[in-house]
């Protein structure tokens, strides 16, 4: 299953420790989004077996105070 993880953080996503996702073989894509009122935002696209794994993997990342939204990508 693919999940899009949106992170609204005052820091760039590149310094937020997404390497763990890469080393775990689940990171498909990552990128920064144009900064909004909540600061810099970015996303990770991950491929995991279920929602629980998505949540657990994101929980392990030492993110600064930020808002995280995890959404499953629809499969056509």
């Amino acid at each position: 299953m693919r999940f899009m993880v949106f992170v609204r953080s005052p820091r760039s996503l590149a310094v937020c420790g997404g390497d763990a996702l890469l080393r775990a073989g689940v990171l498909l894509d990552a990128g920064d989004l144009v900064a909004g009122v909540c600061g810099v935002s970015g996303y990770w696209l991950i491929d995991v077996r279920d929602r629980e794994e998505a949540v657990e993997r994101v929980r392990r990342i030492p993110l600064p105070a930020c808002v995280v939204e995890i959404r499953q990508v629809a499969v056509v």
Partner: peptide, 17 residues
């Protein structure tokens, strides 16, 4: 598909290691 996904994930892990 679950076997393909597992092999791919392990392959990606190995590529980083």
């Amino acid at each position: 598909p679950e076997l393909c996904a597992e092999a791919l994930r392990l392959g990606r892990v190995l590529a980083e290691l």
